[in-house]
């Protein structure tokens, strides 16, 4: 079986895979990084989004053998070692942008890439369009959009820290 070497969340792994093994299968079943989820079989839902070389990819739609030598970040690799959340994670919590949590890892990974690709910030309409590849069945997206809008201001240095959500 082919061998591939991947750096996942700053740790190097060498694994044997079948030619047909998907990246998400390697992550979940071989590396036991189960934060990356599988929600469909047609590349539609985005629950499996991870970063590869800094870009978001649907890990259900890429073969592990294609990832040899690549640098992968999954949801498990976002928070700091001391548990400090990434601003996007923090914003999702603050704005109640998750309910069942199943789409959340892919949603957060997509959102971070979306913000990175729009250094001048996005309008809420642009955020909604940018989320085309991610499905959420719980939230109606309302709070996800608010969370991304708040996180982008922190990530892009426009505000020093997360703006709290609406008054209690």
């Amino acid at each position: 079986m082919p061998q591939v070497t991947l750096t996942v969340n700053d740790t190097k792994h060498t694994v044997e895979v079948e030619a047909r093994t998907l990246l998400v299968e390697t992550l979940r079943e071989q590396l036991r990084l189960t934060g990356t989820h599988v929600g469909c079989d047609t590349s539609q839902c985005g629950a499996c989004v991870v970063h590869m070389g800094g870009d978001s990819v649907k890990s259900c739609t890429i073969l592990s053998v294609q990832c040899d030598g690549s640098d992968i970040t999954t949801i498990e690799g976002l928070a700091a070692a001391d548990g400090t959340l990434h601003p996007m994670q923090e914003a999702f919590r603050e704005y109640h942008a998750l309910q069942c949590g199943f789409c959340t890892p892919g949603m957060v990974m997509s959102a971070i890439d979306l913000v990175n690709k729009h250094p001048d910030g996005m309008s809420e309409k642009e955020i909604r369009e940018g989320l085309e590849g991610n499905l959420c069945r719980c939230t109606g997206y309302h709070n996800i959009v608010k969370a991304i809008a708040a996180a982008q201001d922190v990530m892009q240095g426009r505000v020093p820290e997360l703006v709290r959500a609406a008054a209690e």
Binding site: L33, G35, F92, R93, L98, G101
Partner: peptide, 11 residues
């Protein structure tokens, strides 16, 4: 939220 946001949910 912490476990879901950090990929530590157990589905």
């Amino acid at each position: 939220d912490f476990r879901f946001l950090m990929g530590r949910g157990q589905y």
